[in-house]
Design a protein around this nucleic acid. Structure first.
Ligand code: NAD
Ligand code: NAD
Lengths: 217, 217
DNA sequence: GTGACAATGTGATAATCATCACACAGTCGT
DNA sequence: ACGACTGTGTGATGATTATCACATTGTCAC
């Protein structure tokens, strides 16, 4: 029990990401400096929580004054590793995949999508905005390796997710973001995150149902 | 401190949603019954966690045997309120909005999208697959009220999110799912969830950076 | 019927995370 | 130069959530 340091709550990381968004907006609105109190207003987090979150990584504010919005944004990006360039690929160029491929704001966070794959003959060879050409899934392994792609985003139907994940891993991918509603299995050393949009809606439905119930009594 | 009952962890609700997915797959694969151990395998949750999650709501298993996949799925859907029909609308028919509008699996969870809005003249009046006609945002309030729409999904750019939220609320919406990277403010009684795809990627980048660091030492 | 067995349901325990409260550091006006 | 003031950084405290361990209960073979 010597190598501590990674005692950082998962929830803290999530919040850091939202701080970035707020700080970007604050700069646009010409606020060079902000207190944890105000920042808390903006992103709906308690001031104490913000200070605690940041304190895990160092001291970024000036006592009696607050935080330099521009500097703090840069610091958080550094913490999250967003100053690095992350070559990324999307597998499954369907409705969701296309939305991600055309989403320009990812580049601001250091993600550059440099390849796309699908298995539908009609789609293969199509050129997307940005000059990316859809490749067949058979090319996943080689392309990932050759271009040093580090992050793979899976937007295929659920039954294809595991196969695609295996191919990405074979090519040497290091991180996977899976949108398919199934948990894929990957080796220990691969970082994996599942995101489920449906479960967000489910959650909403639950909260609404609860609220309705309490209102009734 | 009498009215307890809603002591259910947020994380539990999230997991319930993933259990549904697994249970659906298990039925397709002809497993009529499953143990918490096996279900844990499938959705990467510890068996004890699954049992605890379910125990908040009742007893759904048979000791010595396990859970009836079909029944359990129905029970969880009941718990989450997914057996109810939730009239839903999407505001901002861009790339992401379109993906959601065309996503057929939502209906299986009780969500039926019955209206769509945008403010771009070129899009207004367009008929989408499913027969939904894109309406101008000026019609939000009336349409939401007239059709009794309960859930609003916001997929506009960030700077339009608050305005759109206000309009939905004015129409009597009860729940909001916000995809724009800004926190909107709504009255207490409205249920609100923000979902940030970018923050999922940020999170992935952080985890990968950490892993790289520990590997180095 | 009855006993061996298998997997649930749950109180107790441990770990994680958020909140609080305040000492302390930096700024600014005079 | 100094004192009043403001807002940070953080140990202590409290709340929430996950894990453990096992007593309990229904099943099934004989
Ligand atoms: N709103 C949404 O669109 C939404 C919401 C929640 C979850 N999801 C999930 O995201 C995934 C994609 O959803 P979508 O709406 O874009 O579906 P889609 O059908 O529009 O797109 C799927 C794409 O994957 C391709 N594909 C199929 N099998 C493949 C394979 N073996 N290898 C490579 N490509 C393959 C198809 O050709 C298609 O282009 C699904 O798993 C879905 O459940 C989508
Ligand atoms: N992959 C993604 O597409 C992605 C990922 C993460 C977050 N987001 C967020 O989701 C939102 C939508 O993203 P997108 O890629 O679909 O953008 P988009 O530009 O394709 O779509 C936005 C749509 O909203 C409409 N719109 C603009 N102002 C409006 C208003 N006042 N009222 C109603 N409609 C209005 C536009 O006409 C357009 O159709 C954005 O806030 C974006 O940051 C998208």
């Amino acid at each position: 029990m010597k190598t501590k340091e990674s005692k950082i709550p998962e929830a803290t990381i999530k919040r850091l990401s939202t701080y970035i968004n707020c700080l970007e907006r604050l700069q646009v609105e010409k606020h060079p400096v902000i207190s944890s109190e105000m920042l808390g207003e903006y992103c709906q987090v308690s001031p104490a929580q913000i200070r605690k979150d940041l304190s895990y990584f160092g001291e970024f504010g000036v006592r009696g004054v607050g935080y330099d919005t521009k500097k703090l944004e840069a610091e958080i990006k550094e913490i999250l590793g967003l100053n690095y360039n992350w070559p990324t690929t999307v597998v499954g160029v369907g409705k969701l995949g296309l939305a991600l491929l055309n989403f320009t704001l990812f580049s601001q966070h250091g993600f550059s999508i440099t390849a796309a794959f699908d298995n539908e003959p009609g789609k293969i060879g199509t050129e997307l905005a940005g000059g990316i050409i859809i490749q067949p899934t058979s090319a996943i392994e080689d392309t990932v390796r050759d271009r040093g792609i580090l992050i793979g985003v899976i937007t295929t139907p659920a039954d294809a997710a595991q196969k695609v994940a295996d191919q990405l891993v074979a090519g040497g991918i290091q991180g996977l973001l899976n949108f398919a509603p199934t948990k894929v299995k990957v080796p220990e050393e691969i970082t994996l995150r599942n995101v489920s949009i449906t479960s967000e809606l489910d959650n909403l439905a639950y909260l609404m149902t609860q609220k309705k119930k309490t209102r009734r009594r």
